[in-house]
Each structure stands twice: as C-alpha cells, then as structure tokens.
Design a protein around this nucleic acid. Sequence first.
DNA 1: TTGTACGCGTTATCAG
DNA 2: CTGATAACGCGTACAA
Lengths: 340, 340
Amino acid sequence: MKKYATLKDIAKALNISTATVSRALADRWDVSCETKKLVQEEAKRQNYRPNPMATRLQNKRTKTIGLVVPEFKSAFFPNVISGIQKVIDDAGYNLLITQSQESKEIEEKNLKLLESNMVEGILISITREGENDEYYQRLIDSGIPVVFFNRVSSKVDAPKVIIDDYRLAFFATEHLIYNGFKKIYHFEGPVNLSVSKERKRGFIDAMKKHHREVSEKIIHTAGVFSEKGYIAMQNLIAKNDLPDAIFCFNDPTALGALKAIKEAGLKCPDDVALVGFSETEIAQLVEPPLTSIEQPTFEIGVTAASLLMEQLNDCVVTPSRTVKLIAKMNIRKSSINIKK
Amino acid sequence: MKKYATLKDIAKALNISTATVSRALADRWDVSCETKKLVQEEAKRQNYRPNPMATRLQNKRTKTIGLVVPEFKSAFFPNVISGIQKVIDDAGYNLLITQSQESKEIEEKNLKLLESNMVEGILISITREGENDEYYQRLIDSGIPVVFFNRVSSKVDAPKVIIDDYRLAFFATEHLIYNGFKKIYHFEGPVNLSVSKERKRGFIDAMKKHHREVSEKIIHTAGVFSEKGYIAMQNLIAKNDLPDAIFCFNDPTALGALKAIKEAGLKCPDDVALVGFSETEIAQLVEPPLTSIEQPTFEIGVTAASLLMEQLNDCVVTPSRTVKLIAKMNIRKSSINIKK
DNA sequence: TTGTACGCGTTATCAG
DNA sequence: CTGATAACGCGTACAA
C-alpha cells in the first residue's frame, strides 16, 4: 500500500495553492501557461493520480452501469453482453459485470457491490434460485433504475426484455407433431424460473391442441446444464421408456441427451429426435446438427441497455413496459422424421 | 436522479448532531438505546443509504479486486473466473469483471474503470491485439498489484500463471507423429500472442526432432474463433493441399476446420485428423470426439487469485514468479490413424 | 451520552 | 491570473 500524491503535495512543492494546481491540471484557460507547465511537470514527477472517490463525492456521477448475470458458461449471456456493451459504449458509459452463479445470496452481494460503486443503473437477469424482489424494489426506490432481461422478476414493476417463450415452445412442439412424431416428451428447465414455465406451457398447449394426451410421465425435469440432460436421458433409456422425440428446455440439455443416446447405441433422429432451445454455436457443429430456437441474443442486450439509457435520460417516470422480441426456429437434421 | 438522504438530513429531522447519528447507525455502545432506536427508525423512513464514496474517501479500502479478460464466449475464461471467484470470496473480497473484447483500446478503458473504482489489485489476461505495457507498469508503480494469467505481458515484471504451452504443443505434435501421420500441418493462433508463439515453437521443435521438414507452407494462421479455422480449412481444400493431420491452436479453430471437412464430403480422422487445444465441453459432444489438451482452468484462476492475495497481504515486495501449471492430453477419435 | 470540529481529496465560488 | 474558503458525506478525536 503506497501513499498517493495529492493536490496538496504538489501545491506544497511548488508553493502555490491547491486551487491553482487543480485548475492547471484541468487545463483551464484561466491559468498562465508557465504555471501550467510547472504543475504538470511536478505532477508527473510525483506520479500524481486524481483520487476518483474525491471526484465522485463532488459531482456524483460515475457514468457506470452494472450488470448481473447468472453465469456465462453458455454462449447465451456473453452474446447478450456484447449487445449491452455496444449501447453502453456508444452512450459513453462504462460497464461493470458480475456473476451470481445461480445463487440468490451471491446475487444480492453483487447488487450491493454495484451499488457501492454508485452505478447509475442496473441490468439484471435473475438467478434461478429465487428472486430478491424486496432488494430490486429497494434499488428502484432509491433512484437506481433497473431493467430485467431474459429471466425477469414477476413481482417488481420495471422494464423487462424477454422473448415469447410460450409461442416458440408451442411452435417447436407443433413442428414435431407435424413431422409425424407420436410419442413426444419434454425436458423441463428449473421449475421456479418463469422461462421454464412458459416453455412448458407452450409445450402442453400445443399437445392439447392436437389432442395428444398430456400426463406427468412425458415431462421430465432436466435443469440447465448438459449433464442434467444426459442423466435424464439415461434414466429414460434405463427404464426403457423411449419417446420418438424430445423438446428440450435448452441446447445444453439437448446435447447432453444426444450424448446419452449415442452412448446407448441409439441414433438421433432415427430413434429419438431432439429439439433444443436458445441456439448455441455448437448446435451446428454437432452430429446430427441440432434443431433449435435461435434467440436474438445481441438484440436482447441492445434493447435492455437502451431501455435503461432511456430511463437515465428521461427524468420523467414512464410506465414500465415489457418488450417481447421475436426468435426463430432453425430446423436441422435432429428433428427430421426419417420413418415418415 | 433522486437525492439521497444524508446523515445531516436525519440529524436535522431529529434535532441532534450528525456525529450521534453516525454512531447510532454504526450501532456503537456509547449511545443510548432510545436515540439509537429513534435514529434507526428515521433512517429507514428517509430510506437512508450511506454514501460509499464518502466512506471510501476515509478508510481507503474497497475490498474489491478487478478482472480483465479478452472475452467469455468460449468456456475457457468462465471456468477460470470460477476459480478466481472461489479464492476472492473466501478472502472476503469482491470481484469486478470487465471484458476487453480483444481490443487494446477497450482494455485500457477497462483498466481505468477498475482504477477509478479503487480496486486493490488486478487480474488480467491480455488482449491479442497488443500489450498496454506502459499502463500495466504504471498500475504497479502506483501501488496496485497486477497478476497476469494465460495471456501474459512479456515486458512487465509481475507474477504470471501460465501452462506449459510449449511442452504440450510438443507432446500433441509427437502424438500425431507416433500415430503414423505423415503430412502434419499447424493452424497458428494470433501472431502477436505469446501462447501462439509457444505452441508454434513446440510444434516446430517436435517436427524437427523427428526429422520432419518444416516449411512455412505447413503453418497457417487461423486465429482464435471457429470461423477462422473454418476458412483456413476451406482454403486448404480449395487448393487441394490436404494434410493427414492438423494440430490446431485451439478447440474452436479445430471445430471450425471439422465443419469445413464435413461439408466438403471428407471425413475426420480418415482424411484429415485433428487435435485441438484447451479442451472445451464441446470436444466430447462433437462427432468424432476431438482430441484436445485440457488446461486446468479452474486451477489457473485459483492460482492467479492466490498470488494476488499473497501480494495484498505481504506488504513485503517478493520477487515476482511465473507459475507453470500442468495440463493433460485427452486422446479421442479425431486423431486416431485408421489407416495404420 | 452527546456535540464540536476537523480531515479525507476534489472542485467551485468569490475575492483579490 | 491566483489564493482563500466552502462544500461534497462520512468518521472520529476531543471536549462538554
């Protein structure tokens, strides 16, 4: 821990006032060129660096916004972040990123951290463990605008950016039905996440529309990560309870399932067809290429950040709105019915 | 922009001094229980939140350390971050993450951002665009310890955590040679990155050891991302300049190459064998599974963070050392010589 | 137990 | 052009 040089130090060294030093360093017109030079030289010599805390204590602006995401092991959030960063950069703001690791506790810790760095706004995709609703509300009340994206709070009234999970799950399921698959299962995501519920709802409604029987047997919880999909599929194989096709909560679970299918000597789509969700780069690289719903990740980031910027600029309190973005389905070999 | 409540505000409301308020909120013993209660109630009612900048201006501690990574689209950095976070958390510190997006300019901006948040130390894996050497040095000089990992500065004297790229590239190449491949190429990483140089050097030396001819023709620049590997492979196919095997800079380039191979109606490893580097989850999921060097990502993070903590605790200036961690080679189908 | 007064490092205002 | 001086919000000796 070294001691920093301060304005006072360099003022003392030059026998002038701190005010002059401050002005000289700010390169203002109302200071003579020679003192300016003297000051700047002395500053360099003492390796002077302005104390950011003191500055902020004065003008109360940090030009920084904070971000909380659950993780960035999958490609989803990194892509969203790129979109966010674009908007933030263009607006001349800085971005501080934190990772909640799907833990409610760490999420709260991160929010506090961002707060103590005086971010002017917060973008958040909440953890699957649960919602810190009271805290989100508290942030908003204390004047820090919050924008939710992807995984949103159901209770807090704030701008939200999501995709129409229900509709896309519906489409994906119908796609399997139209392709002539008869025994269709669903691998469900984390139960207390709104996206899981929406996708499950879309699946069920599509099945019902086409008069397919929907029982609890055809829905299996498989979480977010590939291992979970792997295990869920292994279980089905062990029980000899093989469906024709599975609509998976996301790509990782679908890829995990794919691995289990291959290991069991089965084939995709011949024995079990698969549909993923929220397109990852891997979807195209894997064999067979995976049918998946491609979310506009970059655009999600752009939209969320823009909504935040809007709030930051308009001091007027606009009613918070939920933006639903459109996604598209990439149909690939993993969901082609070869028996048809 | 709302105005925050301050100590003064709540002191005024209660007709007492700010000092008492301060002490009451700090829950000290030298203040009567009733005023304590009064103050705490008033604080809650005014939604009082201590101004972090003022606090930091006083005790000059933030208990926060900063991180700069080039990107986190690949799984590599997210895993490292998990390791870092473990150590940081255990030590009671906070972590601020930034992303340089492989841009030298953004990297410097991020360093400044971290600095202005008064982080007590910085962990960095530098961008491939070049090195902000002067700036790293400046940080260290001004008392902020810096630890490099994975992608390190060649000029700045500071602790570094790397894996033995040279040796592993050497092994990987020998593995291909021992497997009977004759025409072996190398897809090189970004030219000005030390890891690229090390891996290339390992490749060349292994080839030389076994008296293979090494010309510029067998080394092709392919960058970091899968598209680059895809294009590089397409070029080779177009020129009808097919090798038996390729040692790729990393997994994404190898996967890109794999895609090009498949699209051209060729087979891996039958026509072209592949070896990747820095194992990604996808390596096992792809067909054929990809031989790759598995880096101890989590451990890299743990080690780097530990080195930083060491520096933070020991006020003594210890000579900076470079830690080389061991990696292992996962041999899979993509590098099996079926002709042998 | 409570209040006064000062310092943390800056910037801004107002005289000179 | 330059120098006092106050203020930002908080903590804390010291005095009462």
